[in-house]
Amino acid sequence: MIETNKTLSTEFKSKPVSLQPKPKGGKDRIIKGILYIGMTVLAIVCFVPFLMMLVNATRSNEAILTGFTLVPGNALLENYQTMMDYVNVWTGFKNSLFISVLVTILTGYFSALTAYGFAFYTFKGKNFLFVFMLVMMMVPGQLGLIGFYELSKTLGILDTYIPLIVPAVASPFVVFFLRQYILTTLHPSLIEAARIDGASEFKIFHIVAIPIMMPAIATMSIFTFIGSWNNYIMPLVLIFSPEKYTLPVLMGFLKGSQVAQNLGSMYLGIAISVVPIMIAFLFLSKYIINSISAGAIKE
């Protein structure tokens, strides 16, 4: 028996087990190739309308009516001048950028603070407030437009940016999303450890909770920025001064003016309004990918 065990031990040592992965077969390569081709086609289909918009912004109205092409034209300056003769797009661009950036920053911070409170604090009426918040998610904001207009009129904040910024900060969906995220990523033991070390509650939130929540905050910031940038009804109802109009409102006026007869100017205005959304998405999506490891917790 001893000699048999020695023989098996010698054979096991002479034939080490290979830990290298087995080479993939041709079937896996075919499936991967089909997936790559499908994703490439899908990316092209999504990119072509955006490219058409940029190309048509450089073409004259007659050239656009002749048909579709991906070759840029030479009427960019003419289209720009025609658009600026009726609407100062850059004033609306500045106003929309100011409102959207402020709403995005305030919503991200205060929603994270609210979600942190709902997740790790116990107080009277907590469940009722959370259920009420879920119910408010199901109510369209347009239903309260008339009441909100009367309230803004009573408070004397019409024709200002206050009713466009302050109510947008209280976003039930963002709070709900961040609460669900932090419950799965932030372990209560980290908060207890910080309290034992003598950190205050606000310091724990800023030093411990915020870095872990940053991927979720960045994700919600994309939707918050896009929603605020594309907001059309609220500025149209609450803002009266032309110099305070946001870009979507100006685009609506541009559509009803003589500029609508020049399709190149319309495409140029739309292209200007879309560029910040693309930049915000590219920046924040990269930030999400780089920060996703910050939410990992090992027990």
Rank of each mutant, 00 (worst) to 15 (best):
Phe93Lys: 00
Phe120Gly: 09
Leu151Ala: 13
Gly92Ala: 03
Ile162Tyr: 13
Pro172Lys: 00
Val101Met: 03
Asp159Tyr: 09
Phe176Ile: 04
Met53Tyr: 06
Leu155Val: 05
Ala119Pro: 10
Thr66Glu: 10
Arg59Cys: 07
Arg59Phe: 07
Tyr109Cys: 06
Asn127Tyr: 14
Ala170Asn: 06
Leu70Gln: 11
Met136Gln: 11
Ile44Arg: 04
Thr66Ile: 11
Pro172Tyr: 01
Leu65Arg: 14
Leu97Ile: 08
Leu77Ile: 15
Val45Gln: 05
Tyr109Pro: 05
Tyr80His: 10
Tyr181Met: 01
Leu102Lys: 03
Phe50Ile: 15
Gly141Asp: 05
Phe110Pro: 13
Tyr121Glu: 12
Lys153Met: 09
Phe93Ser: 00
Ser60Gly: 15
Phe68Ile: 15
Val135Met: 14
Val166Glu: 03
Ala57Lys: 02
Asn95Asp: 01
Met83Trp: 05
Val135Asp: 07
Ala112Thr: 15
Gly125Gln: 02
Arg179Val: 10
Ile182Val: 12
Pro49Ile: 06
Gln180Ile: 09
Ile162Val: 13
Lys94Ile: 13
Ser96Gly: 07
Met83Asp: 02
Gln81Ile: 10
Leu158His: 03
Phe176Ser: 02
Leu164Gly: 00
Cys46Gln: 11
Asn79Met: 06
Leu134Asp: 03
Leu77Val: 11
Pro167Asp: 00
Asp85Lys: 14
Ala115Tyr: 08
Gly144Ala: 13
Gly73Thr: 02
Met52Ala: 11
Gly108Asp: 05
Met138Thr: 12
Val166Lys: 04
Phe68His: 08
Val103Gly: 01
Leu106Glu: 02
Glu150Tyr: 14
Asn79Cys: 09
Asn95Val: 01
Pro172His: 01
Glu150Phe: 15
Ser111Arg: 05
Ile165Asn: 04
Gly73Pro: 03
Val101Lys: 00
Asn79Ser: 08
Ala115Lys: 08
Leu70His: 10
Asp159Phe: 10
Leu65Met: 11
Val71Arg: 15
Leu183Pro: 05
Asn61Trp: 10
Trp90Glu: 01
Pro172Leu: 00
Thr107Arg: 00
Ile157Cys: 01
Leu164Gln: 02
Pro49Met: 08
Val131His: 11
Val89Pro: 10
Thr104Val: 02
Ser152Ile: 03
Val87Gly: 04
Phe110Glu: 07
Ala119Met: 06
Thr91Ala: 12
Met137Thr: 12
Leu65Ser: 14
Tyr116Arg: 13
Thr107Cys: 01
Phe132Tyr: 12
Tyr121Gly: 10
Ile105His: 03
Leu143Thr: 07
Asp85His: 09
Ile182Leu: 13
Thr82His: 14
Gln142Trp: 10
Tyr86Ala: 14
Leu129Pro: 08
Ala75Asp: 13
Leu65Lys: 12
Ile64Cys: 02
Met137Pro: 10
Trp90Lys: 00
Ala168Thr: 10
Val131Pro: 07
Ser96Val: 05
Thr82Ala: 14
Gly67Leu: 04
Gly147Cys: 08
Leu164Pro: 04
Tyr121Gln: 12
Ala119Tyr: 06
Ala63Ile: 10
Pro49Ser: 06
Thr58Glu: 04
Gly125Asn: 04
Phe132Ala: 14
Tyr121Leu: 12
Asn88Val: 08
Asn88Gln: 12
Val48Asn: 02
Phe118Ile: 02
Leu113Thr: 02
Leu129Trp: 14
Leu97Asn: 06
Asn95Glu: 01
Val169Thr: 04
Phe98Lys: 11
Thr58Phe: 05
Val103Gln: 03
Val71Thr: 12
Leu145His: 03
Val169Gln: 00
Ser60Leu: 04
Val175Leu: 10
Thr69Pro: 08
Cys46Glu: 11
